[in-house]
């Protein structure tokens, strides 16, 4: 038995003692995936949905997601909204200031591809992936809290597939 089977829906607790056999990779990934700490900032209307996701109804903290006020303590960046060129500079620097390994969730159409500003928005970055690497794209305008939670779950899956040796390179 390992963490993967432990988290499966089909896993039924029998009350008998269980033994978990695992590797260091899996143990570290299990810990990392279940405590993704995003940098606490919002960019536009998607931030309202993000705040709703943090709040009691959707409670992102169930997944260990807990906003931090400093990039030094965070390993996840949720780009929640329109990225203007003025903000792109700051986002880029904040991303650089986060410790490795770090992940980016692009939330909503604006940060995915420019959204409604894709053609005529002179001030909008057409997709935040042009300035920082993005791990998960959450579609929607704005995405509902369920969609953001879905993105976080997808990111957890991604984190669980990584290997420590690759991260240390």
């Amino acid at each position: 038995m390992n963490f993967d089977t432990l988290e499966k829906e089909a896993h039924i607790k029998t009350g008998e003692s269980e033994v978990i056999l695992t590797s260091l990779d899996e143990l570290a990934n299990w810990a990392r995936a279940n405590s993704l700490w995003p940098l606490g900032f919002g960019l536009a209307c998607c931030a309202i949905e993000m705040m709703a996701t943090y709040a009691s109804n959707y409670d992102l903290e169930r997944f260990g997601v807990f906003p931090r006020n400093s990039p030094r303590q965070s390993d996840l960046m949720i780009i929640s909204g329109t990225v203007t060129f003025k903000m792109a500079d700051r986002i880029s620097r904040l991303y650089e200031q986060m410790p490795d390994p770090k992940y980016v969730v692009s939330m909503g159409s604006c940060s995915n591809c420019g959204g409604p500003y894709w053609e005529h928005g002179y001030h909008v970055v057409k997709g935040v992936d042009r300035i920082i690497p993005v791990d998960i794209y959450v579609p929607g305008c704005p995405p509902r809290p369920e969609a953001l939670i879905g993105g976080i779950l997808k990111l957890q899956e991604k984190v669980k597939q990584q290997k420590l040796a690759d991260l240390k390179k």
Binding site: S70, P71, R72, D89, R90, I91, R93, L94, E96, Q97, M98, P99, D100, P101, L167, K168, K169
Partner: peptide, 15 residues
Amino acid sequence: PSNPTTEKLATYESG
């Protein structure tokens, strides 16, 4: 992992 850059080591002032 440890990959310090000048930008990462810079003082944090909200970007």
